[in-house]
Nucleic acid binder design. Structure first.
Lengths: 207, 207
DNA sequence: TTTAACTTGTGAATGAATTCACAAGCGCTC
DNA sequence: GAGCGCTTGTGAATTCATTCACAAGTTAAA
């Protein structure tokens, strides 16, 4: 299959969100035009994005909302559960561990880890924070799919090195650093500092 | 000035982060090659990015670390303080209000707002959560620069409409929705659901 | 059955971003 | 001060992403 651009996948995700909304509101059919309006793009873009994976619409009519939603969930790999571990039980890590948006979307947080004695053993929404020392052993046993890195900036790379050595292939990084990983590992970084600086740039350079 | 791509700004931000690191470690000079390695890009890309704004290097030698850092801070508008308000004092909002990464980078959180009686008046790291009812009045008085939206998905658009009407020009959005704003308002969205789905896609489509 | 009104799917055209490749400048050594 | 090793800055070439534009398919109505 042709390589799919990152931007395309992000848009598919946006379309799916809107489709689920529409589904909940009982809408049964939707056009690329409508989908585009809510996804912040153009109808041609919507059709092109979908065309990488097949043809899901009916000419003259548009797309069946539940059908397209199912297709997108399938394309995005959301028809199954993914097992998530969280590394770092500080402010962000703890907030994430208790964040219900995960479970809602079939991402199951199975464990949280920390190094500091005062965090280990603490209870986060029914989940006990584990000692980072057991990370590799637990990964061996439990085969999580995704690791969320919520440790301080200066420890992020070394934690990621451990995760990679232990065989993790997907990492969601909250530390404001560019992580180095081998090509078969996918990293997505949520970098608030970068977004803020983007806003700063925009505010500073308006005509 | 030529329009600068979003991706360029993000990279500048990454370069700056690494420069500040290098500065702290006492490195005085750096090549585009080195900067590229740590920024996850190529040396040509680094030089092209910088060339939009001027020529900051010395041929044969590279860039002066403190000088380039200063230039980048200037380009990104980080030579001044930005005043930030946070809308929504739930889990994410509260975590953000107490997050020190903001202050470190000269983004000063001046207020947090919520609608619910049990949050209003609560103390977050020395800051009292205000009643959302006073939002417009306070914006008039205090002229914040950036609004962080950390309210539930279904309330995000209406909150943003209020912010826009009150004159805010920069919004950092944590709700997993595509917000509609007029063209003179800049929105950056941090969408964890989207990132997770990107990872799910990557895991599902590896060769 | 024909026509009209829509909307998809997709090559072709355009536009944007990245990479190439190299002349020109700098510092060091002899 | 000539020569060498490096590294920048930048047009040109290339690759990648988006938009255009239209044939083809669908529904509904006459």
């Amino acid at each position: 299959m042709k390589r799919i651009a990152d931007s395309t996948v992000r848009r598919l995700s946006a379309y799916l969100r809107f489709l689920e909304d529409s589904e909940a509101r009982g809408v049964t059919t939707i056009s690329s035009e409508e989908l585009a309006r809510r996804g912040g793009t153009t109808s041609a873009q919507v059709r092109k994005d979908l065309s990488f994976f097949g043809s899901f619409g009916k000419r003259g009519l548009g797309y069946s909302v539940p059908e397209l939603a199912t297709q997108l969930r399938d394309i995005l790999g959301l028809e199954r559960d993914w097992r998530v571990i969280i590394i770092g039980a500080g402010k962000i890590g703890a907030a994430l561990a208790q964040y219900h948006g995960f479970q809602q979307r079939r991402f199951s947080v199975i464990a949280a880890y920390d190094v500091s004695a005062d965090k280990i053993g603490r209870n986060l929404d029914g989940m006990v924070v584990r000692d980072m020392a057991h990370l590799e052993r637990d990964i061996q046993r439990e085969h999580p799919d995704i690791a969320v890195v919520a440790v301080p900036e200066d420890r992020a790379q070394s934690v990621v090195d451990r995760l990679v050595r232990a065989g993790m292939k997907a990492i969601l990084n909250f530390a404001p650093v560019q992580l180095q990983v081998p090509p078969d590992v996918t990293v997505k970084t949520v970098n608030m500092a970068m977004e803020l600086e983007g806003l700063s740039f925009a505010l500073s350079n308006r005509d």
